[in-house]
């Protein structure tokens, strides 16, 4: 196998995909093989985006959204499965993670083409909030159909889709024999194996308020890390910061956190849990994920073993 050769190359590639830039580095003995595999991995991300992005009119998610309140839509087993897992996150988080958040995210407009600059009217927020309820998404396992029961409902997989795409792209590289690589999709990171035989991958975590600074770093292997923050997609009005992570309970941007990083075994899981913990500010249950939460006062809160498990170093 190529990986058995003594000289390894760190092959770097980047591509604009899924509304962000996906950077990959893979250690390979054969550059050509790495390039071909990276091409297939990028193609896999594009394929998943074409299934799941509500911004793409022909996607399966768009078809479900278009048929809201009208009829169930037959979808692929893959889309069905990710919707099913999304609902599981909704149940686990008592609706804080809600895949039917679409009406609210579109109302606030952080994913649109224009910069949002004003707070939507409260009555509009209230009416959109009424449409957000994962319990009104019917998933029929027998014929793999999805049905949004009320007109105006819409699915937005923004909190999970990117992570899923990276997981699948990682599977492609593994399938072609690569064991040591890193995906970085706009700050959502997945690493496979170690960077070298003695060193795990070192991931910096951006400081939520100090430009050009890190809050710290962690060392991980065969894991994913995602960070949700209020410092990139936001606007300020009357000295209040309004950002893109919407609390479905209030219809407004979640308050109390500035940045949440979650380390998990998959990118999908870290992506979803970072959003949930950003809104809940923590999890004291025994099954709590590994997290670092930076609150509004910039105080750091760690899950019990986070610091020692990932050798957290504060900058």
């Amino acid at each position: 196998m190529a990986q058995d050769t003594t000289l390894l190359y760190e092959v770097n590639a980047s591509k604009n995909l899924i509304g962000t830039v996906v950077d990959v580095k893979v250690f390979a003995g054969d550059i050509q093989k790495a390039k071909k595999s990276l091409y297939l991995a990028f193609r896999e991300i594009e394929r998943i985006d074409s299934l799941l992005a509500w911004q793409i009119p022909s996607s399966e998610i768009s078809r479900i959204n278009d048929a809201a309140g009208k009829a169930p839509v037959k979808i692929s087993f893959e889309t069905f499965s990710i919707l099913k897992r999304s609902v599981q996150y909704s149940v686990l988080s008592s609706g804080i993670f809600d895949v039917t958040i679409g009406p609210l995210t579109q109302l606030w407009g952080f994913n649109g083409d224009e910069e949002p600059s004003d707070v939507p009217q409260v009555n509009k927020i209230d009416s959109c909030k009424q449409l957000v309820n994962f319990r009104n998404l019917t998933l029929n396992e027998k014929d793999t159909t999805a049905f949004l029961q009320r007109k105006g409902m819409s699915i937005d997989l923004g909190g999970i889709g990117k992570g899923y795409a990276i997981d699948r792209a990682s599977d492609i590289l593994k399938k072609y024999g690569f064991t040591s690589f890193l995906f970085n999709a706009g700050g959502d990171i997945l690493v496979s194996g170690m960077k070298n035989e003695n060193q795990k991958w070192v991931i910096g975590i951006k400081h939520p308020r100090n430009e050009g600074k890190l809050i710290g770093s962690v060392e991980i292997a065969d894991l994913a890390i995602a960070t949700s923050g209020d410092y990139e997609r936001y606007f300020e009005k009357n000295s209040v910061r309004y950002h893109h992570i919407i609390d479905p309970r209030t219809g407004f941007p979640a308050i109390g956190s500035t940045s949440v990083s979650v380390v998990a075994e998959s990118s999908e899981k870290s992506d979803a849990l970072a959003t949930i913990l950003f809104i809940t500010h923590g999890d004291s249950s025994p099954s709590a994920p590994d997290y670092l939460i930076i609150d509004a006062n910039l105080t750091l809160h760690f899950s019990p073993k986070f610091k020692s498990k990932y050798l957290f170093v504060q900058e």
């Binding site: 830039v21 950077d23 706009g186 690493v191 910096g204 951006k206 995602a226 923050g229």
Partner: peptide
């Protein structure tokens, strides 16, 4: 910070900082 980038997705323009810290930090989560 080396490894940090500024991206304008609609305009397809990107700036990436490159330097020694690229070897200190393999990526930056944000």
């Amino acid at each position: 910070i080396a490894g940090e980038s500024l991206v304008c997705i609609p305009n397809r323009v990107r700036a990436v900082v490159y330097g020694a810290q690229s070897s200190l930090f393999d990526a930056i989560s944000h």
